[in-house]
Design a protein around this nucleic acid. Structure first.
Lengths: 207, 207
DNA sequence: CGAAGTATTGAAAAGCATCAAAAGTGGTGG
DNA sequence: CCACCACTTTTGATGCTTTTCAATACTTCG
């Protein structure tokens, strides 16, 4: 079992200060941040994108539960249960900090904000499963681009695994592969930080 | 704006709810519970299913944001903003009570529970957009059956509008129509099929 | 180097969307 | 009570999108 727990900073691998309460933690793409059932606390995403999964879906595949991008809180349920109910993995390189505002338990307002953010995020994710393959993938990359430092995602360099993209968008790996190839050919429209305007240009240009 | 009175005969206009703390309100299928932007408070769903929508999706159609079934809280964001961020409609006949625990603002634990429930619900709804049409529709009806008194939904009598089912599952109305016809012909096997033990209990106990 | 995972590509088929039209349903006013 | 309207549901025919199956390359890492 990999020990990354604790907001006190003890036992952290290669981190600088044990004294600071909110020590940022960095996770590379694909890294498992925590597993469902483990003890631990809540985190705030300050860079990158995190994927949350709910156990197995019967075929041995994890079933996507949610995504978290910059500003989102993950693992808030630990404040109630003490354990995680979902499994978290880094979709892209990402940075988290323990979510304990000013060293104390998050208050009323903090919880409400987290809830409101979660609801908004969910509507975004749900929309990723509507429309054509090209639109879905482009939308996902657009959402993720907010959480990527620099333009790597925009340039198509540091994409998540196709398998992750496929599971999030509800497509197959093959379709995602073909879709990304197509998007590259079109110059990746819509991937630059907004989305809607560039999206329409793509539609107009044909494919 | 139409004021719908509770089934108990109280003619509520919202302001009087200071006196009667937890007065249940009943809404018929299709009824608009609240609109995004309106002032109001949070509710707990005690019967039926509520659909939450986020504004227009560009084509004039509401974009599904979430569903709420028995036990779920809707409109919690009003505790922070004072106004609703989503629009709520009754997918089936449903009953709500104002969410103010013991006449006070919901506390820390109540909020955490609401958040945890919302996250679970998200995962359920996301799953409704994966797999084949027949599975999706059957899963939705399964989720909703928890909130329907009696077996009407199982018997196919008091279904939501096909349009709602279509928008929730990400299918077209035509496909949903054909799918439901097929499920009926099969005796609705899909409803017990994948997951819910409660489904089978419901069938066995016979309303 | 070899193994395991990951990505690409093709061809064929399944599934669903689309378009179109008819039939059913509920509510309103004459 | 009926005619009428708006909306919803059903059904058919057709074709596009995506999946499926299969085979091959590319990457990463012990």
């Amino acid at each position: 079992m990999v020990e990354f727990s604790g907001s006190d900073g003890f036992g952290m691998t290669g981190d600088l200060s044990d004294l600071v309460v909110n020590t940022p933690r960095h996770f590379p793409r694909g890294y498992s941040i925590y597993q469902a059932g483990e003890k631990g606390g809540a985190w705030r995403v300050v860079a990158g994108t995190v994927r949350l999964d709910r156990g197995q879906d019967g075929d041995g595949n994890d079933a996507l539960a949610s995504l978290a991008v910059v500003g989102d809180i993950i693992g808030a349920e630990t404040l109630l249960f003490g354990r995680y109910t979902f499994t978290a993995r880094a979709l892209s390189d990402c940075t988290l900090i323990p979510w304990n505002e000013y060293g104390e338990r998050p208050g009323h307002e903090g919880l409400l904000k987290a809830l409101a953010r979660a609801e908004q995020r969910f509507a975004d994710i749900l929309a990723l499963r509507t429309g054509r393959a090209a639109d879905r993938v482009a939308r996902l990359l657009s959402i993720m681009s907010f959480g990527v430092v620099g333009r790597r995602t925009l340039a198509g360099q540091v994409l998540p695994r196709l398998r992750d993209i496929a599971e999030i968008t509800g497509l197959t790996i093959e379709t995602v592969s073909r879709t990304i190839k197509q998007l590259r050919g079109e110059g990746l429209p819509g991937l630059t930080d907004g989305q809607s305007t560039a999206e329409k240009e793509k539609d107009a240009s044909g494919r």
